[in-house]
Write a protein that binds this DNA or RNA. Sequence first.
DNA 1: GGAGTTGTTTAGGA
DNA 2: TTCCTAAACAACTC
Length: 265
Amino acid sequence: MPELAEVEFFRTRWDCGLGQRVLRVRLHADNRIFRKTDTAALVRTLTGAALRSSVAHGKQLLFRFSHEAWLGLRFGMTGELRSEGPKFVPGRHEHLVLGQARRSLVFADARQFGLVRFHQGATAPDWWSELSPTVDSPAFTRDRLKELLKRHARAPLKAVLLMQEGFPGIGNWMADEILWRARLSPRLRAGQLDDTDVFALWRAIRLVAAGALRIVAPSFADPPASWLFRHRWEPGGKCPRDGSLLERATVGGRTTVWCGQCQEE
DNA sequence: GGAGTTGTTTAGGA
DNA sequence: TTCCTAAACAACTC
């Protein structure tokens, strides 16, 4: 479920706990979600620590606590954050619950494709500080995009846009939306683009990222009907630009929707 | 019961 | 060696 804007939406759901101490940590230590986590250290350190701040980077979140404690979260397909009452009892999918005096901060993920990470230290962990620039940051330049396309010249555009090391935050629906805006077929090989195409793709990336953050992040609202998003899952869905029937196929290993008329092969 | 799901990692092939 | 693809992970819905 969560891409750039959805992750940002979930981040703010724990804002109500900022500045407050964690009194009790409950977790399902044996679950796959903790495969990279020292759960004993997490429980020991976060108990009594106060939540200081949070930040999103693409599909990833980092929460900073007092006691030099850092909590990293990834959502996979079905992860989410919620705030519940102080007496909340975790169900089988609520893998991590930080109990504060007035609320419980809940991380749930039914499929457990997500990830919980814990770090202790004066500075953010390496797996956070080494992330490449997100697509909405000033560092994501046209030259950087050109370089990424060159590096994966033989892969289809759709597959390249989904690579988090190059395009942090872009997921399946955003990739389709971007390619539709740029009028480029998802099946085009990345190395086939000329400078005009690269510029169109860059502009579409910026526009879709900014639009998603503006529309989706504050309240999880759907984008307007002028976006491909609203038509991509409908049977018989039509292109909001020219009204022709949308195409659907697996590209780059993922279900992909595009307009065969206005997206250049 | 089978197919599909807004994600990532890994094994194996080209 | 490097890069790309398909399968696997786990649980739910239609």
